[in-house]
Amino acid sequence: MSLLFRNREIEKGASQRLKLSPARRFVMYWVHHVQQGVASLGELTRNPFASFMTMAVLGLSLTLPTTLYVLVKNTQSISAEWQQASQITVFIRDGVKPAAVQTLQQTLRLNKKIAAVEWVDKAAALQEFREKSGFGEALDALDSNPLPDVLLVTPAQQFRSSEAAKRLLFELEQNPEVAYGKLDVQWLTRLHALLGLAQDILGGLALLLCLAVVLIVSNTIRLNILSKKDEIIVMKLVGATASFIQRPFLYTGMWYGFVGGVIAWCATSLLLWWIEGAVTRVTDLYQSQFNLAGLTLSEMLVVWAFAIGLGLLGSFLAVRRHIKMIEPS
């Protein structure tokens, strides 16, 4: 394009290109970009150690939040299971006859909201307590059984959420035979609060690490730009636009993210494999079957896109600031 002179011969090349069909021009545009992208990848291999260091920093910085994310995700899935299995303990008022308790049990069994009712007889409970607690003799000194009859109520599938179970508990407490009921959701509430805390920490940590990644990439690109100062000056002298000069550096940033993202995948899988043994041992203690779920395909793609985005952002910041400052004089 010539601003000062019309009909310059140099225009011929450009006008010939203008005759290309839009589809072909579109294809050529991308071919051109791919060529430049590959060229800047080649540039990276000229200085493999420094490039790899930046990629590794980017990848490893993303590994920590990614791993934490996977752990939080897994904990959430476990706590969801636990929440499903909530059970209501109903204590029967003292002095209620066994026959009345049995009637209550029958009534509750007919309730659609209830899946199962187990009656723990106070005599049986005392026996069990005597055997397990080691207070056998002390219990003998009591003239009456201090334990109440207990009904263990398991809510039906659709009434197992924390809220529905609470409503069911309230309903059960309306029965005259019932002294009070207990739904142990407090520990679940605490677990959720802890999970929320972990998520907030994860968010803050991820934000800080992403910021660090952007700064590191930006600084590396800045050094790249400064080391090519003479080349940039020459390009400006022969009429290169800022965007033409910027492009290879932006591609470099993109490649940092591209490889850094793959490093983040590998490091995350490695880290999860490393802690999986420990996690299994912990869950075995709770006698639960548990498999640590890794990153799904879409999550991996998100991590990748994130890495590339950070690489691009870092190089964009460097390029915007430093290429403008380099001027021929």
Binding site: M1, S2, L3, R8, E231, I233, V234, K236, G239, A240
Partner: peptide, 19 residues
């Protein structure tokens, strides 16, 4: 617009300014 102006001017320098 400066780059486009420079494209209309061939410049030669004492120190060549080659890459």
């Amino acid at each position: 617009q400066v780059p486009y102006v420079r494209r209309d001017i061939g410049m030669i320098f004492q120190d060549h300014r080659l890459l």
